[in-house]
Simulated scan of single mutants.
Amino acid sequence: GDLHARNPMLAMLRNIAEVQTHPLLRPNDIPQWIMDRAVSAGIAIDPPAAYLLADSVGAELRILDSELKKLSLYREDGKIRKEDVAFLVSYVREQSIFKVVDSAIEGKSGDALRLSKQLINSGSSSAMIVRMIERQVRLLLLARDLRLRKVSTSSVGKRLSLSGFPLQKTLEMEKRIYHGRLEFIHEMILESDIRVRDGSISSDVALDLLLAQLRN
């Protein structure tokens, strides 16, 4: 968990050693960290590639360093480009579902529809996408409740079963999204689920209608 600056153990250690703090990078700082790391390692990388890598991996610095090295071997004679990251880094493919979820919650229906079609064409189910949106909405509602009750970040992470970048991203999104919108999305998902269960519409149609309804 988080250690407060006045933690007794830290106070004791300061008498015999130098205590350094290394806070988790904020999402906006990760691309610059990647570019700085690349320069120090003699690796050339385009900024768009750094941003895609940051968006895909998050603040997992060891993984970022490892992926940079793999990409540099692939692009041994040139600069790492955005398409290289998309081709080689498995996290990029895995992130597609989370981009659909984020776009849906933020009301970017066009992006959500486009990305969901790509996922379905690659073998994902529309029902799974809806379940992932529902899961994130529940996490955001719970995160808001815990924040209002002034629960510590480490305890929130345990309650949400999240840590690191996913936790940080969820907490930041919770502050951006109006509470009434989260309740609206949850209600729309429940209504959509009822219509699918009674056979009124298919899962594919239900997803398309849901994403259209969530447009800002």
Rank of each mutant, 00 (worst) to 15 (best):
Gly1Leu: 15
Gly1Tyr: 15
Gly1Val: 15
Leu3Arg: 12
His4Leu: 05
His4Lys: 11
Ala5Thr: 05
Ala5His: 10
Ala11Trp: 12
Met12Cys: 15
Leu13Asp: 07
Asn15Tyr: 07
Val19Asn: 02
Val19Ile: 03
Thr21Glu: 15
Leu25His: 11
Arg26Phe: 08
Arg26Glu: 08
Pro27Gly: 02
Asp29His: 06
Asp29Pro: 00
Asp29Tyr: 01
Ile30Met: 05
Pro31Lys: 13
Trp33His: 12
Trp33Ala: 06
Val39Asp: 07
Val39Ile: 10
Ser40Pro: 08
Ala41Glu: 13
Gly42Ile: 01
Gly42Lys: 04
Ile43Phe: 03
Ile43Ser: 00
Ala44Asp: 10
Ala44Trp: 05
Tyr51Thr: 11
Ser56Phe: 01
Ser56Trp: 01
Ala59Cys: 07
Leu61Tyr: 03
Arg62Met: 08
Ile63Val: 14
Ile63Gly: 13
Leu64Thr: 02
Ser72Tyr: 04
Glu76Cys: 13
Asp77Thr: 12
Gly78Trp: 02
Gly78Ser: 08
Lys79Trp: 07
Ile80Tyr: 12
Arg81Leu: 09
Arg81Ser: 11
Lys82Tyr: 05
Glu83Pro: 15
Asp84Asn: 09
Ala86Lys: 04
Ala86His: 05
Val89Trp: 03
Ser90Met: 08
Ser90Leu: 08
Glu94Trp: 07
Lys99Phe: 00
Lys99Ser: 01
Val100Ala: 06
Ala104Cys: 03
Ala104His: 02
Ile105Gly: 05
Ile105Pro: 04
Gly107Asp: 00
Ser109Asn: 07
Gly110Ser: 06
Leu113Gln: 04
Ser116Val: 01
Gln118Asp: 11
Ser124Met: 14
Ser125Met: 03
Arg131Gly: 13
Arg131Leu: 13
Met132Asp: 03
Arg135Leu: 09
Val137Lys: 00
Leu140Ile: 02
Leu140Ser: 10
Leu140Lys: 11
Leu142Thr: 08
Arg144His: 11
Leu146Arg: 09
Leu146Pro: 09
Leu148Glu: 13
Lys150Ile: 01
Val151Gly: 06
Ser152Val: 06
Ser154Asn: 13
Ser154Gly: 10
Ser154Lys: 13
Val156Leu: 08
Gly157Glu: 01
Ser161Phe: 07
Ser163Arg: 13
Pro166Leu: 02
Pro166Ala: 04
Gln168Phe: 05
Lys169Cys: 07
Leu171Tyr: 04
Glu174Val: 01
Lys175Tyr: 02
Tyr178Leu: 15
His179Glu: 12
His179Lys: 15
Gly180Asp: 05
Gly180Ile: 03
Gly180Trp: 03
Leu182Cys: 10
Glu183Ala: 15
Phe184Cys: 12
Phe184Gly: 12
Glu187Met: 10
Glu187His: 14
Met188Ala: 09
Ile189Lys: 06
Leu190Phe: 10
Leu190Lys: 12
Ile194Gln: 12
Asp198Val: 09
Asp198Lys: 11
Ser200Gly: 05
Ser200Cys: 02
Ser202Gln: 11
Ser202Phe: 09
Asp204Gln: 05
Asp204Ser: 06
Val205Trp: 08
Val205Cys: 08
Asn216Trp: 07
